[in-house]
């Protein structure tokens, strides 16, 4: 085990090269719906139990199924109303189980990125070969069902190995060259995109995905009220919008159809979306487009600035 994952250097949030977004926007705003499949009776992982009880663990299984049966369409319609294309963090087995959801999102030109095969299959304990096979399977599934070359990764149930990001980037290159596997949502160290050091030397970025604004963290971990969640979303936006005037920022709302799409929560969520998209200098976009823009326009300057600051500090 390592003291530090080694993906990035310390890089203070001041005096950085300026990030600019298309059309002079101050902030890049994206919504990342997690569309997940949890298995009723998954095989046992030695490091993490999928459910608190033996199968059937009805409370957990059935509310997640609610997300797909009921919640998905509600959130999809709401995002459409505000001109937002979702960037889907996808349990890719869902392409097989629920192709209707995939078709509806594809029709709306949403992005699909890999969130593993099932959210009940964890990376813990896998050999490199196994993790590589799982990642490859997930990226291939997205390609064969949607034609999209998967660009982003959020490890299934946020279960990682030391090699996760390397493997994802390498499989992406093998499958799709520079069009695949170039950003991660797994790291929460910044409000701007940052270069990630990989063993392959591939140009690769961390795109802020925000656990703090994640509805499951808000509702199931922090257990806050629906209207307070909307308030936090607005406060987060206000600050990043103000800071984005001098250097471009990113705001992500990661969601789950079984959380935010419950009838008692959607009204408050809609208020926040209406507020955010009602501002003029907002680039409403997807994770892939943010990462592409950063890698093409700002990555080199960022790498040079980090190296320069490190050299001066030492």
């Amino acid at each position: 085990m390592k003291e530090d994952p080694g993906f990035y250097s310390y890089w203070p949030y001041q005096d950085r090269p300026k990030i600019t977004w298309p059309n002079g926007a101050r902030i890049a705003f994206w919504v990342a719906p997690n569309i997940e499949f949890y298995e009723l009776d998954p095989p046992t992982n030695p490091y993490r139990a999928a459910w608190p009880t033996g199968s059937p663990s009805i409370a957990g299984y059935s509310i997640r199924d609610y997300g797909n049966r009921v919640g998905h369409t509600r959130q999809m319609n709401l995002l459409e109303k505000y001109g937002i294309r979702g960037s889907i963090s996808l349990s890719t087995a869902l392409c097989d189980h629920h192709p209707e959801i995939i078709a509806a999102c594809k029709e709306r030109d949403w992005e699909f990125f890999s969130h593993g095969i099932y959210n009940t299959r964890y990376t813990y304990g896998m050999s490199s070969k196994q993790e590589r096979a799982m990642i490859q399977d997930s990226m291939q599934s997205i390609y064969s069902h949607t034609g999209q070359k998967c660009a982003g990764y959020l490890a299934p149930a946020l279960s990682h190995s030391e090699e996760t990001l390397d493997l994802f980037a390498e499989v992406g290159t093998e499958l799709f060259g520079d069009d695949g596997g170039f950003y991660t949502c797994d790291l929460f160290h910044d409000d701007q995109p940052t270069p990630i050091n990989l063993r392959s030397g591939k140009k690769f970025a961390s795109i802020p995905y925000s656990l703090e604004m994640n509805d499951t963290i808000a509702f199931a971990v922090n257990k806050i009220e629906p209207r307070r969640y909307a308030e936090q979303l607005k406060l987060c936006f206000d600050r990043l919008y103000a800071e984005g005037e001098s250097n471009g920022t990113i705001m992500c709302i990661p969601t789950h159809n079984y959380q935010v799409s419950c009838p008692h929560r959607l009204k408050a969520f809609e208020e926040a979306l209406e507020y955010i998209t009602g501002h003029s200098d907002v680039w409403v976009t997807t994770g892939r487009e943010i990462a592409r823009h950063f890698l093409d326009n700002h990555y080199t300057a960022a790498v040079a600035d980090i190296a320069d600051k490190e050299a001066r500090a030492s």
């Binding site: 299959r121 196994q130 190995s161």
Partner: peptide, 24 residues
Amino acid sequence: QDKSKKTELPADYLTYAHRDYGMD
């Protein structure tokens, strides 16, 4: 990529018996 990890999960952890249309 094979150097850093020493563990391996049973093969059934990467097979998906119910990965098909509908529920599991």
